Simulated assay, not measured.
Amino acid sequence: MATNLDLTGATWRKSSYSGDTGGECVEVADLNRHIAIRDSKDPDAGALAVTSHSFTAFVTAAADDLLG
């Protein structure tokens, strides 16, 4: 996990599955060596940054769990 990353100018995006109704969404930003993750409802609360390998493992595990 990375600390003290400068997120100024980061391009944040959220899943197309999130829709426009608010909901329980996270946003991600590709920082080359890390992926930053934040709560879309409270973007000023801070962000978690993980390696791209860790993020890929998380997304894969989440998709596997959803697909059963």
Rank of each mutant, 00 (worst) to 15 (best):
R33A: 11
T51F: 03
V59S: 09
V28G: 00
L48D: 00
A2C: 05
V59E: 04
L67A: 10
A10M: 08
A2M: 05
D64G: 05
S40W: 10
L7N: 03
V28N: 00
I37G: 00
T21N: 14
S16D: 08
N32V: 06
A61I: 04
I37W: 02
C25I: 12
Y17V: 08
V50C: 01
I37Y: 02
E24T: 07
T11L: 13
G23M: 10
S52N: 11
G68Q: 04
E24A: 11
A61Y: 03
G19Q: 10
A10V: 06
V26Y: 01
D64T: 13
G68S: 08
S54M: 07
F58L: 08
A36S: 02
S15C: 14
R13K: 15
A2F: 05
L67M: 13
N4P: 04
G9R: 03
G19N: 06
G22L: 11
E24V: 12
V59A: 10
D39G: 04
S18N: 14
S54K: 03
P43S: 12
G68Y: 00
V28E: 00
G68C: 01
T8P: 01
C25H: 08
S18T: 14
S16Q: 13
A57T: 08
H34N: 08
N4K: 14
T51W: 04
A57Q: 09
V59F: 06
A49N: 00
T11R: 10
G68N: 03
L48W: 02
G9W: 04
T3I: 13
A29D: 06
A57R: 09
E27I: 10
H34P: 01
F58W: 11
I35L: 05
M1W: 05
A63Y: 07
E27A: 14
A57M: 09
T51Y: 06
T21S: 15
G23A: 14
V59R: 09
S18V: 14
S54H: 04
E27Y: 12
A2D: 05
T3H: 09
T60Q: 07
A10W: 01
D30V: 01
A63V: 11
K41H: 14
A57S: 08
V26K: 00
Y17E: 10
L5Y: 00
A29V: 04
S40C: 15
D64Y: 07
T21G: 15
S40T: 13
T8N: 10
L7K: 03
R38V: 01
K41C: 14
G19E: 13
T56Y: 09
A57F: 04
R38S: 02
K14E: 11
D30N: 11
N4M: 15
D64S: 10
S16N: 12
A45E: 05
E27N: 08
D20I: 15
A36H: 01
V26S: 03
F58P: 00
V26I: 15
R33H: 12
H53R: 15
L7F: 06
S15Y: 09
R38G: 00
V59I: 12
S18D: 14
H34S: 03
F58K: 07
D39H: 04
V59M: 06
M1A: 06
D44N: 12
C25W: 07
P43H: 12
D20K: 15
I37P: 00
D44R: 14
L7M: 07
